[in-house]
Design a protein around this nucleic acid. Structure first.
Lengths: 233, 233
DNA sequence: CCAACGAAACTGGTTAACCAGATTGGTTTG
DNA sequence: CAAACCAATCTGGTTAACCAGTTTCGTTGG
């Protein structure tokens, strides 16, 4: 068999190709929710790709909740209906990578909500963890060191305290991208860092006092510079 | 070698075990951003697990942006710093599955934003696609059929029109879960579906007229029943 | 004639062998 | 002595063979 080394991009393209072929198969064979997909071996033969590629494509669709693999049994179509299946696959195929503006916009949206929820729902344990992150940030800044990591860990602690597992997951997904993009764009600034200590403290106090409005207001202040930067790209 | 069939849950546990061992290794060996991780073979031997398990764990950390694999070269630690790395891995290990309330809460938050952005940024092409989804929904409802899929596809069309790729992705992630959970909880209701036609039309008109405030207000109306349901679980 | 049984085929998951590009360290050459 | 080179080695990626439940369907016994 001919062998080639593919770049990540090319690999993604053939994966998307498999996904669209799976969609066509579902439509053509009129497979309904709960039905079994042809076996991985059969698909790899029919599509003329390796079984590994088929497995990766299936795993991607499984991640989005469209398929469900059962060991020693088969891969099954989720109970979301044919129309939704087609629409979702279409969207997944057209999905593009997140740009910086989208990331920041989403982060601000999420955090203005998580901070309110945290003020309502935080436990004593949450407070302890936020305080730890807060102190770690202060120490770094006062030593004149870069504290972006500690900064974001404080924000992640808030997300955890929000008690909303979905938003917590989403914050985890975007945080590393935010960090790397920040470093690329040189968003961090020593002067802002010192202001950040007080701003973090204000947010923490509002959460501790279980005051959602105050917490959101203080977070808005904290995001002011970032907000303007985001909309001036 | 001894072989056992593991449930998905057990499999996830050993994967989390590998992830925490990788974290320990990074700390113990004092690996810094950009450094190369030991090879997959070495890790599988040291941790006494299969190389496949190691690869899966690495892929998971790669999904969260903490590692980066380069073909024929090695796996490298992302440029996010040791502190952030530790905190993130800790959070990922403790991450729990999304509950229904979190999902709905997040959906409402996202959609109240995407609908505003869509009103600001929608293109003519976006309008056409939203109109298609809208009509498909109306037809189904007027025929007395279940139209939850068409309902959600209309909302996904709005997310696409928002021009924010991150929020679009997040909507795609939660939608299938929402559908299945809705069916479990029997949230859908024929009476509400007829009201939904007008509500969808109102949202569409506001987006078409590029009126963000109106769009958000109409979306809030549309979510009213869902909102109450969510907070009464 | 039908239900109960069982072996063979089929399933997704797992393992081990293999591929070719990247890396490395010692040798050679200017 | 330094730079260029080359082969041995190491890397993540890929393939094929294997594992053990699950399913299927023909057979058998009542």
């Amino acid at each position: 068999m001919k062998l080639e080394i593919l770049t990540k991009n090319e690999n993604q393209e053939i994966q998307n190709g498999i996904i669209s072929k799976i969609r066509d198969l579902i439509n053509y064979k009129n497979l309904e929710p709960g039905d079994k997909l042809p076996s991985e071996r059969m698909l790899s033969e029919k599509f003329e790709v390796s079984r590994t590629n088929v497995r990766e494509a299936i795993q991607k669709l499984e991640f989005y909740g469209l398929l469900k693999s059962k060991p020693q049994s088969g891969t099954f179509i989720a109970d979301i209906g044919q129309v939704a299946m087609n629409g979702m696959i279409e969207d997944i195929l057209r999905l593009e990578d997140s740009d910086f503006k989208s990331l920041v916009e989403t982060r601000i949206l999420l955090e203005l909500k998580t901070v309110r929820l945290a003020a309502q729902r935080r436990t004593e344990e949450d407070l302890i963890q936020m305080k730890e992150a807060l102190d770690a940030y202060s120490v770094k800044v006062e030593n004149g060191e870069d504290a972006m990591q500690e900064d974001l860990l404080f924000h992640l602690a808030i997300a955890k305290a929000s008690g909303n597992s979905t938003m917590n997951t989403f914050m985890l997904i975007i945080t590393p991208e935010i960090i790397t993009k920040f470093e690329e764009h040189h968003v961090c600034d020593k002067g802002l860092a010192f202001m950040g200590i007080q701003e973090h403290q204000d947010i923490f106090d509002a959460i501790k006092n279980q005051n959602p409005q105050e917490a959101k207001a203080k977070m808005k202040v904290h995001f002011k510079a970032l907000y303007q930067y985001c909309y001036n790209i």
